[in-house]
């Protein structure tokens, strides 16, 4: 398989938007994520438990949404980019059966002091539900090569 291109610092500009990533989470996926991550808290797959806890139904794992932010960033930047930092703040709950869209924008670029053309890009990130409400707000720092 041909290796995808990795972005160069010179190709990235403040204000650039990342191609959005749309997910269609299902309860099945939440069970799969529970198994793969080891987070078996029942609010993510057992409706009566979630309702007894005061939730409208089962909800997405916060770290599933953070994982999607990671996917968004690494897919955009390419395989040789090194994701240095990701931060995600969950501002609302999200439920399966509804599309979820991850997006991001370049907020700064900084050339490394080695003057070899490499450097660090800072991104603002978000995840929004079908109504456009941003229930995840985040940021990332990514290292790009020359």
């Amino acid at each position: 398989m041909l290796v995808s291109r990795t972005l160069r610092l010179s190709e990235v500009h403040v204000g650039d938007e990342l191609p959005p990533l749309t997910k269609h989470p299902t309860t099945r996926q939440l069970v799969q994520y529970a198994g793969a991550s080891g987070d078996f808290y029942e609010i993510h797959y057992e409706k009566p438990f979630a309702e007894a806890a005061g939730l409208p139904g089962v909800i997405l794992h916060g770290l599933l949404k953070a994982g999607w932010l990671g996917e968004l960033v690494q897919t955009w930047a390419g395989p040789n980019a090194f994701v240095r930092h990701i931060e995600a703040s969950y501002r609302g709950i999200d439920q399966p059966g509804r599309p979820y869209v991850l997006g991001g924008r370049v907020v700064s670029t900084e050339a490394s002091t080695d003057s070899d053309g490499s450097g660090v890009v800072e991104l603002e990130l978000w995840g929004q539900d079908e109504t456009g409400r941003r229930t995840t707000i985040g940021k990332a720092r990514v290292e790009l090569e020359a």
């Binding site: 794992h61 770290l63 994701v83 990701i86 703040s89 969950y90």
Partner: peptide
């Protein structure tokens, strides 16, 4: 979960 942050 209110938030997660990682530095690698």
């Amino acid at each position: 979960n209110g938030g997660n942050s990682y530095k690698w």
